[in-house]
Design a protein around this nucleic acid. Structure first.
Lengths: 229, 229
DNA sequence: CGGCGCGTTGACTGTAGTCAAATAAAGTGG
DNA sequence: CCACTTTATTTGACTACAGTCAACGCGCCG
């Protein structure tokens, strides 16, 4: 990867590298390289040596743990411009998996951390990104702490709609669900069947429309918002 | 507050200030001051101007949102050495409330952020703290995503036991619950009654013992761990 | 002493979980 | 390109757990 590539990068205004000046960006670009992952591929495995970190350029990823019974528990979703990998820690804490075909800009961790100490702007940028992840994580805590499953499902759909929107503050009216029913259930702390039933219910009420298993259109944003309350 | 006070600070080895050298610490101490809050007191109100941030020296705090129906939804707990306040943002996003009598070391945000730009070590230290909060938040996501209420309650007790332990890695065998039933329910996405019933059940099974409404002893750590699985 | 906040318990209802089967979608090999 | 297998999703019937409403107990403070 050359700095040239950064000029065309779809996340160059939002990712951690956006705060760097040209010279710093060149240094970072020198140690980074693009890599593609197919849907379902493991990006980092849990409890491995933490040797790399990355910016997600396109696609989507999930962070998960496998608990003692072998059940996957998803704890976060990562969207483009998000940062992946465990800094300042010998091993990774979560499984990181591509939810859709994805492109990453990967950096060796040692080199990345060295650049952080050399360039405070990079540290600061990572901090801002981490604070954003923390906000997202707390929003998720809020979401899955809702008592009825319908509110959790509705809230998840809204968060997908926001993530799928072209502009950072809008919401897409129509999009593809990035998660399987099983993944949604894992994220929401419920079961496949309940997710399916609540989706059916929302469709019967005229709040959403489904096009195939993954396609989704929001017919009444207000009603969906209401259902998520 | 003077640097002298820092020497006796119970969290001086763990809080964000621990990474600073003497001169930096003196600068930070110059803009910080201690303040005590009583149980239940609001530390920062949601949606206020974000004018201050703080290190929690002793006690405990909760971060919460009040949703449209007026129901409180707790999204995080903060323990001593934790950092409070919203950096890089005009307004606070959450209500911050003292759970027990607490002592804070408060800094005006503008001064604090200026010190961060002057001293990369402080930025780096805040980053490490934020990464720790992010881990904690994801652990909470994992906890409240469990399907049965008993596992959620048991897991919460374990996390209290860890927080109450004198050493960072141990677990206290006996401690006071820092949350009311209502707060536990809010955190776990369930109801007061369910929390109460599951506690009664755990006691009946001989896993825990209750001493009054708040006192708790873990009789069988293994069984509790098992129940939380 | 009486009220108030907090916690526990009981009875009942309803929603979500479980087990099982049918259907739809996606992938495979001819 | 189609038949076939495999996987994902929906639906149904039943059960169990959690939510709701209500009463009661306890400790605290005025």
């Amino acid at each position: 990867m050359r700095p040239q590539a950064c000029a065309d990068c779809p996340v160059r205004d939002h990712a951690v590298c956006s705060a760097l000046d040209e010279r710093e960006l060149a240094e970072l670009a020198a140690i980074g390289q693009h890599r593609d992952f197919r849907r379902g591929e493991t990006i980092f495995a849990a409890d491995d040596d933490s040797i790399a970190c990355a910016t997600l350029i396109s696609g989507a990823a999930k962070l998960s743990k496998i608990d003692s019974d072998g059940v996957e528990r998803i704890v976060a979703l990562i969207h483009p411009a998000g940062f992946l990998g465990q800094l300042f820690s010998a091993t990774t804490r979560h499984e990181v998996t591509a939810l859709t075909d994805s492109r990453l800009c990967i950096f060796p961790r040692a080199g990345f951390e060295r650049l952080m100490s050399d360039h405070p702007a990079l540290t600061r940028s990572i901090l801002e990104r981490t604070l954003a992840e923390l906000d997202a994580s707390r929003a998720l805590t809020d979401l899955i702490g809702r008592r009825d499953a319908k509110a959790r499902v509705a809230g998840l759909l809204l968060s997908f709609a926001r993530a799928a929107a072209p502009s950072p503050c809008g919401t897409a009216q129509q999009f593809e669900l990035p998660l399987t029913r099983e993944e949604m259930a894992s994220l929401l702390g419920t079961t496949i069947e309940t997710v399916s039933r609540r989706l059916t219910e929302l469709e019967r009420e005229g709040v959403i429309e489904r096009h195939g298993a993954r396609g989704l259109a929001i017919v009444s944003p207000a009603a969906l918002q209401q259902a998520a309350a």
